Amino acid sequence: MVDEQLPKQISLDVDLPDEQTFDSLVVGDNSLIYQHCGLLVEQSESTELPFLTYISGGAGTGKSHLLVAMSHNAAQQQKSHFYLALDATLPYPHTILDGMENIQLLCIDNIQHIQHSKDWQRALFDLINRIRETQVCKLVVSCDRGPKQLQFELADLVSRLAWGISFSLTPLDNLDACEALNIKAKQRGISISRESLQFLISHAKRDMHSLVAALDELQFQGIQEKRKISIPFIKQVLDL
Protein backbone atom coordinates (compact mmCIF):
# COMPACT_ATOMS: atom_id res chain seq x y z
CA MET A 1 0.00 0.00 0.00
CA VAL A 2 1.37 3.41 -0.95
CA ASP A 3 1.12 6.24 1.58
CA GLU A 4 -0.93 9.14 0.26
CA GLN A 5 1.70 11.58 1.53
CA LEU A 6 4.31 10.25 -0.91
CA PRO A 7 5.32 12.55 -3.78
CA LYS A 8 3.03 11.70 -6.67
CA GLN A 9 5.85 11.80 -9.21
CA ILE A 10 7.55 8.81 -7.56
CA SER A 11 6.30 5.40 -8.56
CA LEU A 12 6.72 2.49 -6.18
CA ASP A 13 6.09 -0.06 -8.93
CA VAL A 14 9.80 -0.74 -9.42
CA ASP A 15 10.84 -3.62 -11.64
CA LEU A 16 12.92 -5.75 -9.29
CA PRO A 17 14.87 -8.82 -10.45
CA ASP A 18 12.51 -11.75 -9.83
CA GLU A 19 15.30 -14.17 -8.95
CA GLN A 20 16.85 -12.03 -6.18
CA THR A 21 14.86 -13.28 -3.19
CA PHE A 22 15.71 -14.57 0.28
CA ASP A 23 15.13 -18.11 -1.01
CA SER A 24 17.97 -17.76 -3.52
CA LEU A 25 20.42 -16.22 -1.04
CA VAL A 26 23.20 -18.50 0.19
CA VAL A 27 23.78 -17.55 3.80
CA GLY A 28 27.39 -18.53 4.44
CA ASP A 29 28.66 -16.59 7.47
CA ASN A 30 26.01 -13.88 7.06
CA SER A 31 23.10 -15.48 8.92
CA LEU A 32 22.90 -12.72 11.56
CA ILE A 33 22.61 -10.02 8.89
CA TYR A 34 19.94 -11.89 6.94
CA GLN A 35 17.94 -12.58 10.10
CA HIS A 36 18.06 -8.89 11.00
CA CYS A 37 16.96 -7.82 7.52
CA GLY A 38 14.10 -10.31 7.46
CA LEU A 39 12.92 -9.13 10.88
CA LEU A 40 13.21 -5.52 9.77
CA VAL A 41 10.66 -6.11 7.00
CA GLU A 42 8.32 -8.23 9.10
CA GLN A 43 8.30 -5.75 11.99
CA SER A 44 8.82 -2.49 10.15
CA GLU A 45 6.38 -0.74 12.50
CA SER A 46 8.45 -1.61 15.58
CA THR A 47 10.22 1.32 17.22
CA GLU A 48 12.45 -1.16 19.05
CA LEU A 49 14.28 -2.00 15.83
CA PRO A 50 16.86 0.50 14.50
CA PHE A 51 15.46 2.87 11.89
CA LEU A 52 18.77 2.80 9.99
CA THR A 53 20.73 -0.26 8.85
CA TYR A 54 24.11 0.17 7.14
CA ILE A 55 25.40 -2.79 5.12
CA SER A 56 28.93 -2.78 3.70
CA GLY A 57 30.78 -5.29 1.57
CA GLY A 58 32.94 -5.59 -1.50
CA ALA A 59 31.68 -6.12 -5.03
CA GLY A 60 29.81 -9.38 -5.46
CA THR A 61 29.17 -10.03 -1.76
CA GLY A 62 25.40 -9.85 -2.24
CA LYS A 63 24.48 -6.35 -1.06
CA SER A 64 22.12 -5.62 -3.94
CA HIS A 65 20.59 -9.10 -3.79
CA LEU A 66 19.83 -8.61 -0.10
CA LEU A 67 18.21 -5.18 -0.57
CA VAL A 68 16.12 -6.43 -3.50
CA ALA A 69 15.06 -9.48 -1.46
CA MET A 70 13.90 -7.19 1.34
CA SER A 71 11.88 -5.16 -1.16
CA HIS A 72 10.25 -8.33 -2.51
CA ASN A 73 9.27 -9.32 1.03
CA ALA A 74 7.83 -5.88 1.72
CA ALA A 75 5.76 -6.11 -1.47
CA GLN A 76 4.44 -9.53 -0.45
CA GLN A 77 3.40 -8.08 2.89
CA GLN A 78 1.75 -5.10 1.15
CA LYS A 79 4.07 -2.61 2.83
CA SER A 80 5.13 0.58 1.11
CA HIS A 81 8.69 0.23 -0.16
CA PHE A 82 11.20 1.71 -2.55
CA TYR A 83 14.50 0.34 -3.86
CA LEU A 84 16.90 2.93 -5.29
CA ALA A 85 20.07 1.73 -7.03
CA LEU A 86 22.76 4.37 -7.43
CA ASP A 87 25.68 4.27 -9.83
CA ALA A 88 28.54 6.56 -10.80
CA THR A 89 26.32 8.64 -13.10
CA LEU A 90 23.78 9.45 -10.35
CA PRO A 91 20.92 9.24 -12.87
CA TYR A 92 18.30 10.57 -10.44
CA PRO A 93 17.99 14.08 -8.99
CA HIS A 94 18.67 14.29 -5.27
CA THR A 95 15.11 15.56 -4.82
CA ILE A 96 13.88 11.98 -5.35
CA LEU A 97 14.48 11.57 -1.59
CA ASP A 98 11.89 14.24 -0.76
CA GLY A 99 9.01 12.64 1.14
CA MET A 100 10.69 9.23 1.36
CA GLU A 101 10.45 9.32 5.16
CA ASN A 102 6.80 8.23 4.74
CA ILE A 103 7.74 4.88 3.17
CA GLN A 104 7.85 1.84 5.45
CA LEU A 105 10.96 0.33 3.83
CA LEU A 106 13.48 2.36 1.86
CA CYS A 107 16.56 0.64 0.41
CA ILE A 108 19.32 2.79 -1.11
CA ASP A 109 22.02 0.75 -2.84
CA ASN A 110 25.67 1.81 -3.33
CA ILE A 111 25.82 5.16 -1.53
CA GLN A 112 29.56 5.38 -2.24
CA HIS A 113 28.53 7.03 -5.50
CA ILE A 114 27.36 10.22 -3.74
CA GLN A 115 30.86 11.02 -2.43
CA HIS A 116 31.33 13.74 -5.04
CA SER A 117 27.85 15.25 -4.85
CA LYS A 118 27.23 17.60 -1.93
CA ASP A 119 23.59 17.97 -3.02
CA TRP A 120 23.04 14.21 -2.66
CA GLN A 121 24.89 14.16 0.65
CA ARG A 122 22.74 16.98 2.01
CA ALA A 123 19.57 15.27 0.74
CA LEU A 124 20.51 11.99 2.48
CA PHE A 125 21.51 13.86 5.65
CA ASP A 126 18.15 15.64 5.76
CA LEU A 127 16.27 12.41 4.99
CA ILE A 128 17.90 10.59 7.91
CA ASN A 129 16.92 13.44 10.22
CA ARG A 130 13.31 13.32 8.99
CA ILE A 131 13.13 9.53 9.33
CA ARG A 132 14.38 9.69 12.89
CA GLU A 133 11.74 12.28 13.70
CA THR A 134 8.74 10.65 11.99
CA GLN A 135 9.57 7.02 13.00
CA VAL A 136 7.67 5.62 9.99
CA CYS A 137 10.48 4.44 7.72
CA LYS A 138 13.12 1.74 8.07
CA LEU A 139 16.10 2.87 5.98
CA VAL A 140 18.63 0.34 4.67
CA VAL A 141 21.70 1.61 2.83
CA SER A 142 24.51 -0.35 1.24
CA CYS A 143 28.05 0.69 0.47
CA ASP A 144 31.33 -0.85 -0.66
CA ARG A 145 33.07 0.37 2.52
CA GLY A 146 32.35 1.43 6.08
CA PRO A 147 31.03 4.95 6.76
CA LYS A 148 34.31 6.20 8.19
CA GLN A 149 36.08 5.30 4.95
CA LEU A 150 33.76 7.49 2.85
CA GLN A 151 35.08 10.84 1.68
CA PHE A 152 32.03 13.02 2.15
CA GLU A 153 32.24 16.80 1.76
CA LEU A 154 29.44 16.90 4.32
CA ALA A 155 31.28 15.40 7.28
CA ASP A 156 28.18 15.32 9.49
CA LEU A 157 26.63 12.70 7.20
CA VAL A 158 29.10 10.13 8.55
CA SER A 159 27.82 10.70 12.09
CA ARG A 160 24.23 10.36 10.87
CA LEU A 161 25.02 7.02 9.22
CA ALA A 162 26.35 5.85 12.59
CA TRP A 163 22.95 6.40 14.22
CA GLY A 164 21.80 2.94 13.21
CA ILE A 165 23.26 -0.56 13.19
CA SER A 166 26.09 -1.58 10.86
CA PHE A 167 26.91 -4.93 9.28
CA SER A 168 29.66 -6.10 6.97
CA LEU A 169 28.90 -8.92 4.55
CA THR A 170 31.42 -11.76 4.51
CA PRO A 171 32.31 -13.23 1.08
CA LEU A 172 31.20 -16.81 0.52
CA ASP A 173 33.74 -19.61 0.81
CA ASN A 174 34.27 -21.93 -2.17
CA LEU A 175 31.59 -24.40 -1.11
CA ASP A 176 28.93 -21.73 -0.57
CA ALA A 177 29.99 -19.86 -3.72
CA CYS A 178 29.49 -23.08 -5.68
CA GLU A 179 25.97 -23.42 -4.26
CA ALA A 180 25.17 -19.78 -5.09
CA LEU A 181 26.47 -20.18 -8.63
CA ASN A 182 24.54 -23.41 -9.03
CA ILE A 183 21.34 -21.52 -8.13
CA LYS A 184 22.20 -18.85 -10.72
CA ALA A 185 22.81 -21.55 -13.33
CA LYS A 186 19.44 -23.21 -12.64
CA GLN A 187 17.66 -19.85 -12.85
CA ARG A 188 19.19 -19.35 -16.29
CA GLY A 189 18.48 -22.90 -17.46
CA ILE A 190 22.20 -23.67 -17.73
CA SER A 191 23.31 -27.29 -17.44
CA ILE A 192 26.70 -27.46 -15.73
CA SER A 193 28.23 -30.01 -13.38
CA ARG A 194 29.39 -29.26 -9.84
CA GLU A 195 32.90 -30.19 -10.91
CA SER A 196 32.82 -27.56 -13.65
CA LEU A 197 31.42 -24.97 -11.25
CA GLN A 198 34.20 -25.68 -8.77
CA PHE A 199 36.79 -25.31 -11.53
CA LEU A 200 35.24 -21.98 -12.58
CA ILE A 201 35.26 -20.67 -9.01
CA SER A 202 38.87 -21.78 -8.47
CA HIS A 203 40.24 -20.26 -11.67
CA ALA A 204 38.11 -17.24 -12.63
CA LYS A 205 37.74 -13.95 -10.77
CA ARG A 206 36.33 -14.81 -7.35
CA ASP A 207 33.55 -12.23 -6.85
CA MET A 208 30.00 -13.27 -7.68
CA HIS A 209 29.46 -10.54 -10.29
CA SER A 210 32.43 -11.82 -12.31
CA LEU A 211 31.41 -15.46 -11.86
CA VAL A 212 27.86 -14.83 -13.07
CA ALA A 213 29.21 -12.84 -16.04
CA ALA A 214 31.49 -15.78 -16.88
CA LEU A 215 28.53 -18.15 -16.59
CA ASP A 216 26.51 -16.03 -19.01
CA GLU A 217 29.39 -15.96 -21.48
CA LEU A 218 29.75 -19.74 -21.26
CA GLN A 219 26.04 -20.17 -21.90
CA PHE A 220 26.18 -17.88 -24.94
CA GLN A 221 29.24 -19.59 -26.44
CA GLY A 222 27.81 -23.02 -25.65
CA ILE A 223 24.66 -22.21 -27.61
CA GLN A 224 26.68 -20.74 -30.48
CA GLU A 225 28.97 -23.75 -30.74
CA LYS A 226 26.34 -26.30 -29.65
CA ARG A 227 28.65 -27.59 -26.95
CA LYS A 228 28.16 -28.70 -23.37
CA ILE A 229 29.79 -26.60 -20.67
CA SER A 230 32.71 -28.67 -19.45
CA ILE A 231 36.09 -27.92 -17.91
CA PRO A 232 37.89 -27.98 -21.31
CA PHE A 233 35.19 -25.67 -22.71
CA ILE A 234 35.57 -23.30 -19.75
CA LYS A 235 39.34 -23.19 -20.32
CA GLN A 236 38.80 -22.42 -24.00
CA VAL A 237 36.15 -19.73 -23.65
CA LEU A 238 37.66 -17.92 -20.66
CA ASP A 239 41.28 -18.46 -21.73
CA LEU A 240 42.21 -20.12 -18.44
Rank of each mutant, 00 (worst) to 15 (best):
C137S: 14
Q149L: 07
R132L: 10
P93Q: 11
V136F: 04
Q104I: 01
L139R: 11
C178F: 00
D119S: 13
E195Q: 11
T95C: 05
H209I: 04
V141P: 07
V158K: 14
A123D: 01
I192A: 09
I131P: 01
F167M: 06
I108G: 05
L86T: 02
C137L: 05
G99N: 11
L90Q: 10
K148D: 13
N102L: 06
N174E: 10
F199L: 05
I114M: 01
I128M: 10
R132E: 13
I114P: 03
V212H: 01
L157G: 10
G164Y: 07
L161W: 00
L169P: 05
H209S: 08
G99R: 11
L197E: 00
L106G: 04
G99F: 05
I114L: 10
H116A: 09
L157C: 11
H94F: 14
S159P: 06
Q135Y: 02
W120Y: 11
L200Q: 08
D126G: 00
V141M: 10
A213K: 13
L150N: 05
D156L: 08
P171I: 00
S193N: 00
I96F: 04
L172K: 06
I165D: 07
D119H: 08
D98G: 02
Q121R: 09
Y92G: 09
R145N: 01
D98A: 12
T170R: 15
L154E: 03
T89P: 02
S210M: 00
R145P: 01
S166R: 15
Q149D: 12
H94A: 15
A123P: 01
N110V: 00
Q198D: 10
P171T: 03
R160D: 00
S202I: 03
L175M: 09
I183G: 04
H113N: 08
I103N: 04
L175P: 00
C107M: 13
H209G: 02
D144N: 13
Q115C: 13
K148S: 13
N110E: 11
A180T: 03
I131K: 02
Q104K: 15
W163A: 14
N182A: 15
I96H: 11
E179C: 10
L124H: 09
V141A: 10
D98M: 06
L106T: 09
K184R: 14
D144W: 07
L157F: 08
N102F: 14
L181W: 03
V141T: 08
I190W: 02
S191M: 13
L90K: 12
P147E: 00
S202M: 09
D216Y: 06
R194H: 11
I192V: 14
L172R: 04
P93N: 11
I201S: 09
L215Y: 01
V158T: 15
L90H: 04
M208G: 02
C137D: 07
A214M: 02
D98H: 10
S168D: 11
A123I: 03
L215M: 12
C137T: 08
